[in-house]
Design a protein around this nucleic acid. Sequence first.
RNA 1: UCCACGGUAGCUCAAUGGCAGAGCAGCGGACUGUUAAUCCGUUGGUUGUAGGUUCAAGUCCUACCCGUGGAGCCA
Length: 450
Amino acid sequence: MPASPTPHVSWKDRMGPTLDGLRRAVTTEDGPSGVPARLRGWLAGRRSSGRLLFLNFRDGSGFAQVVVAKNRVPPESFEAARACPLESAVEISGAAFADARAPGGMEVRAEAFAVICAAEPYPISPKEHGAQFLLDHRHLWLRSKRQHALLRIRDEVLHSFREYLREQGFVCADTPIFTPNACEGTTTLFETQYFDRRAYLAQSGQLYNEAVALSVGRTYCLGPTFRAEKSKTRRHLIEFWMLEPEVAWAELDDIVALAEGLICHTVERLLERRALELEALGRDLAPLRRIRAPFPRITYDEAGEILAGKGTGFTLGDDFGAPDETALTEDLDRPLVITHFPAAIKAFYMEPAPGRPDRVLGLDIIAPEGYGEIVGGSQRIHDPGLLRRRIREHRLPEDAFSWYLDLRRFGSVPHSGFGLGIERFVSWMAGLSHLREAIPFPRLLYRLSP
RNA sequence: UCCACGGUAGCUCAAUGGCAGAGCAGCGGACUGUUAAUCCGUUGGUUGUAGGUUCAAGUCCUACCCGUGGAGCCA
């Protein structure tokens, strides 16, 4: 192999220091002062005080104040920094100092400033905007400090979920998006062409997860799901991401404990690693610090009794509506676990409760603070005869489920799993008033772009 | 799909049926410690679309289009 013509430089060294790293170095007690740096990024804001400019600069890792003093930089640098439009791509040479007057405790004092690519007049101002305008400019809105924080919180949530499940011995095995038929036969599916036949966009990976669980024991999938419901509320997206663990040998109580562990681990990680971002959103951290296992747990029938006393108009036998969920959790500071639902309102594959054939071993977890249902799951039927009967009772096409029934013919065991809505979870953590900010590019009823 | 509300400057919003307005952004200027900086000046309009009532319509009427919130469905 021929010798490399230039010495190898690692990726990290090529890219140079980031604001995030500089801030950590400079603001540490007894840390260095006046750390020289060359930074590349975007001009996020500017205030001027004559011969002194205060720039809000974003390099991707974070935001920092850059001070450009007229008598400390070449004249062309000062003019460029004074006049270039917001969101221009710029390069700054200077040094980083700890300074209590700067937001975040650090500022970069510029020695040179150059515009790499001047922006056109930027449509998003620091003032208020309506939801429609911001969503039309979602591709640019993502650059704001608030969205920057949310992107990192979502990333941390996804990372922590995977981290916890991996520690518990789970294997991530993703499930298909194109599916030949409706898994549960309940919600409306998006229909699409699959060459010369019809296919549907997945609304759950559960049935496939069950197959994988009988191979590796503990599995999960994490990906987008699609519901063609004309939902028009702050709690619904047309395309959303769902985490679905499935565990062989697990019964209802086992996956309640799994959900508790998963949620508590992720809340802890967020408080530990993303407290600054949560605070940037104005999120009150006190309610998050109170999230501890075990979660309060009631049955469907007990919930019905509580609701009878609250007068929400709930009828026993129905599923809970949004006002019912709010009423059940209004006095709680932790998520509420509800189990043992009527079989009639739940999916065909749920295991009947021992001694109560009209109730099934399903679980819902309702988040506090009005964030609604974040988890739905169940113990699955493992008896082949019962499962076949249920498929017939629900008038589902038996041949489409032949592979699913096979799972009960070859070493069937009790198993359980649940689905957790990523955007609902992120909304709850971040204290959002609408799900649309919890995903980079939300798909809403009348919005398919950007 | 149903219910409620809305559409006026680039943005956020005002305007008893009687001259189309403000703040912010933009543009020009002042300012060496700003924190959504401040101050002075200034550009900017087919009032969602079509029709109707009226001496006169942003305003009232009809239809349509688009959007927002809620219900149901669920994560």
